[in-house]
Every structure is written in structure tokens, then in C-alpha cells.
């Protein structure tokens, strides 16, 4: 092999590696669905505690979560049925972060439930959601950065407005998490 061949091979490798080091590509749709579901849960609990809707309305909470889980399962099944071209190391790492953040939030809510008041449990979910968005943000997604900051701000704001903390946390989920999902979907079109 001479030096011109070596140069040609190296240039090809650089081209391929540059093209494959893509930005993290996530599905905005699932952020939209889970942001709406989580926000609505907070909203319902706050409305019930304010006496604006009957107490029986809290039963809508589990139904909303079940609906979101079923929707997610259907979409994951459809995704698996598609002949996907590739999965990048970055995408695999993102799925790990998503899984760890959400399962830790769930575990902490279950094992530490007695320590946390109603809104502290909601805030833990907001923190997990913010971690996921910050991870997306460090791979070059500014919309995710905005979403993560909105979620953190909603926690700070809720901390100083406890009587309406549910509305504030719901707003954080709607704007930060679902808003990110919607913005990401619109940006693709």
C-alpha cells in the first residue's frame, strides 16, 4: 500500500466516523404522551385536594397511567416490527439512562413512600424526567435543555407555593416534558 492509498483509506474512515457520530435521535411522541399523563395526574390530585372535583376523580389517575403504558407498549411493538437499519452506541446508552432514571424514581417512591409527602413524590418524577432531558441536551439538543430547566424551575416554584404545588408541577410536566416532545416532533416535520 502506498501513501496515496493510505490517505484515501483514512479519508474514507474519517467520513464514515463523522457521519455515524450523529446526534441523539429520540422519539418526541413518547415524551409528549408521558408528559401529558404525568402532568394530568398532578393536576387531578390538586383539583381533588382543592375540592374542585369529586374525590372519585383520583381513580382517573391509574387509568391515565394504564392508557400511557398501553400506548407505549403498542408503539414499542410497532418499532420492533420495523426493519430498523441500525442502533448507535449513543442510542443504547440513552435507553440505559432512561431506564435507570425512571426505575430509580419508581423505586424511591415505593421504598421511601412514608418519607415523602404527595408533592415530594411528584417532584421525584420531575427530577427523573429532568435527568433524561439533560442527557439528551448534552448531545446537542437545546429543546431538551429548555425542557429540563423548565422542570427544575417548576420544582423550585412549587417549593415556594405549596398550596398550588400540584398545578405548578403539572405545568412543569406539560411545558418541560410534553412540550419538549411536541417541539421535537414539530422540528422533524
Amino acid at each position: 500500500m502506498d501513501s496515496s492509498d493510505a490517505r484515501e483509506h483514512l479519508e474514507m474512515v474519517e467520513r464514515i466516523v463523522a457521519a455515524s457520530s450523529r446526534k441523539l435521535d429520540v422519539s418526541g411522541e413518547l415524551f409528549l404522551v408521558w408528559g401529558l399523563a404525568s402532568g394530568t395526574l398532578d393536576l387531578i390530585v390538586q383539583l381533588v385536594s382543592d375540592g374542585r372535583v369529586p374525590g372519585a376523580a383520583v381513580w382517573a389517575g391509574p387509568l391515565i397511567v394504564i392508557a400511557a403504558v398501553i400506548y407505549t407498549a403498542i408503539r414499542v411493538r410497532q418499532y420492533r416490527a420495523m426493519p430498523a437499519g441500525r442502533m448507535t452506541l449513543l442510542e443504547r446508552e440513552f435507553l440505559n439512562v432512561l431506564w435507570i432514571a425512571l426505575s430509580m424514581a419508581f423505586a424511591v417512591n415505593v421504598i421511601g413512600g412514608n418519607m415523602f409527602s404527595q408533592w415530594a413524590q411528584s417532584a421525584i418524577w420531575s427530577v427523573a424526567a429532568a435527568i433524561v432531558l439533560f442527557y439528551i441536551a448534552v448531545h446537542g439538543n437545546r429543546r431538551a435543555l429548555v425542557g429540563a430547566i423548565v422542570l427544575l424551575l417548576s420544582i423550585a416554584l412549587a417549593n415556594f407555593s405549596l398550596p398550588i404545588a400540584g398545578y405548578v408541577l403539572a405545568g412543569g410536566m406539560y411545558l418541560g416534558y410534553a412540550g419538549f416532545g411536541l417541539a421535537d416532533m414539530l422540528a422533524r416535520e
Binding site: V13, I16, V17, S20, R86, M87, T88, L89, L90, E91
Partner: peptide, 9 residues
């Protein structure tokens, strides 16, 4: 090179 940054292709 294509497989370098991929879990699979």
C-alpha cells in the same frame, strides 16, 4: 468503520 459507533447495523 460503519460499525465503530454502532451497537449493531
Amino acid at each position: 468503520a460503519e460499525l465503530l459507533n454502532a451497537q449493531w447495523v
